[in-house]
């Protein structure tokens, strides 16, 4: 030991970032950013004061949900959301499988990999609602635009996770199948698919949840489903109905989440 302990030896905990310039730079930069960001928030007290009244109305409306006066609209909206979710998840998963396989570096040549990854990146970058607007412009208002949006979103999500899963599989099993002289397709069906199938089912169920949740939102821009009903009710200041719709969405989402997580747990 070179260092003998002297009384009075100072100690302070080591810093997370060694270099004092970077440390202080980050700290000061962060503070400056925060101040600037907070200053850019335009608060209009007059407008908020007026809004509070409406906030009160919303609150009152929300503690008294009204399920009945717009019952037909609500039911048809919910059914439409569910239907969109089912179709979009099914189509999305079917498309995701080849793209997911193509996005796994251990199975395909580089060009295929890059193309598939590009598709995934494109689909994941844009918020569903932006995609929904574009589809609404192309296909007109209604559930078809919603389905296309959800398919687009599902493909990015499911293929990305599927590809990552395939890249993590046990290489020994694939090698064993390859060693028997199997073709690429045979390798896929015997060496890869059995390993990732439970995960794929799990992913599909998980995406089903997400799609249901999203289907409540894309309706706001005209892509069908319960979101459209919700948007209308808020615009008509019918907060009791809006409250009922929100509660129904929450209940539906929670119910599917419970079911799908139960199924996913059993699969593992």
């Amino acid at each position: 030991m070179t260092q003998t302990t002297l009384p009075g030896r100072q100690w302070s905990p080591p810093n997370l970032i060694e270099n004092p310039w970077i440390r202080w730079g980050l700290l000061i930069g962060g503070i400056i950013y925060l101040v600037l960001a907070l200053l850019s928030v335009d608060v209009n007290p007059g407008r908020i004061a007026r809004g509070m009244e409406r906030g009160g109305q919303i609150l009152v409306g929300f503690v008294q949900p009204d399920f009945f006066s717009r019952r037909d609209n609500i039911i048809s909206g919910l059914i439409e959301s569910l239907v969109m979710t089912v179709v979009a998840t099914a189509i999305g998963v079917v498309i995701s499988v080849p793209i997911g396989i193509g996005g796994a570096r251990n199975l395909v040549p580089l060009p295929v990999y890059l193309v598939c990854r590009l598709v995934i990146a494109l689909s994941r970058t844009f918020q569903e609602v932006i995609i929904a607007i574009l589809f609404v412009v192309m296909l007109g208002f209604g559930p078809l635009a919603g389905v296309m949006t959800l398919v687009f979103g599902s493909v990015g999500f499911v293929s990305k996770l599927l590809a990552e899963n395939i890249e993590e599989i046990d290489a020994a099993q694939v090698e064993a199948i390859r060693a028997t002289g199997a073709s690429w397709m045979q390798m896929l069906t015997y060496g890869v698919l059995p390993q990732v199938l439970p995960r794929l089912v799990g992913l599909s169920l998980y995406r089903f949840d997400i799609n249901l949740r999203e289907s409540a939102v894309i309706g706001i821009v005209g892509a069908g489903g319960i979101g459209a009903t919700l948007n209308t009710s808020i615009q008509r200041y019918e907060y009791n109905t809006a409250s009922a719709i929100l509660l129904l969405i929450i209940a539906l989402v929670m119910a599917t989440e419970l079911v799908s997580s139960a199924v996913r747990q059993r699969l593992q």
């Binding site: 070179t2 302990t5 009075g8 100690w11 080591p14």
Partner: peptide, 25 residues
Amino acid sequence: RKFPQGTVDEAFRLLERVGLGQFPD
């Protein structure tokens, strides 16, 4: 982590005693 200096001294002494004087950090 502002412990009294007496505590820090004692901690250093103990670390030396158990043979870990060289890696407090």
